[in-house]
């Protein structure tokens, strides 16, 4: 008699097939999908490159700065990079619409450069990366982050000491 129950349920609720690709598909809230990268928050610590097992993330030193490269076509969506990122620079979205023609294979990537600048304190060539927030209490304000971004490591240390924290 079980089939009668299912029959009635299907009559009431309609078919259980989801209508995709003819209509949008439901996506679970915590779906682990395409990685997003926010250059402004990246400290250049390269922790994500270390933990990425398939080597989807790579950093290269270029004359312009530190280049971040991430290839979606080898990422296994494990979420390790997001877990170990000290800022929220790298995060996983719930976007899974990634099927593409083979011509776009190498376009499925993120390529960004953290540029070199002259330190506003001493004038030395340094990376304009965000400061590492680990252990800094009270946390950086957005203004402080922008200020630290323009300093070299030695001047950052000095600024932090003047602020009265040890990092």
């Amino acid at each position: 008699m079980n089939f009668l129950k299912i029959f009635v349920r299907n009559l009431v609720k309609g078919p259980s097939t989801i209508p995709f690709p003819f209509a949008p598909a439901w996506t679970p809230e915590r779906m682990r999908g395409r990685i997003q990268f926010k250059l402004q928050s990246c400290t250049g610590c390269r922790a994500c490159e270390q933990v990425c097992a398939p080597g989807a993330i790579r950093f290269d030193k270029t004359p312009e700065g530190l280049r971040f490269m991430r290839w979606h076509n080898t990422c296994v969506f494990c979420g390790m990079c997001e877990f170990y990122c000290p800022t929220d620079a790298i995060s996983q979205s719930d976007d899974w619409h990634m099927a593409h023609a083979v011509g776009e294979k190498y376009g499925m990537a993120i390529r960004e450069v953290i540029p070199y600048i002259a330190c506003t304190g001493c004038g030395m060539k340094t990376l304009a990366s965000a400061p590492n927030p680990v252990g800094v209490a009270p946390p950086f304000t957005p203004e402080e982050i922008e200020q630290q971004r323009n300093l070299c490591p030695a001047c950052r240390k000095k600024a932090l000491a003047e602020r009265g924290v040890q990092s």
Partner: peptide, 21 residues
């Protein structure tokens, strides 16, 4: 190869998307 469906594994809807392409 003509179409790539990245994912490890891709979800069924993504495979359907690839088949549609």
């Amino acid at each position: 190869v003509d179409v790539n469906v990245p994912g490890c594994p891709p979800r069924p809807q993504a495979i359907i998307e690839g088949v549609a392409q």
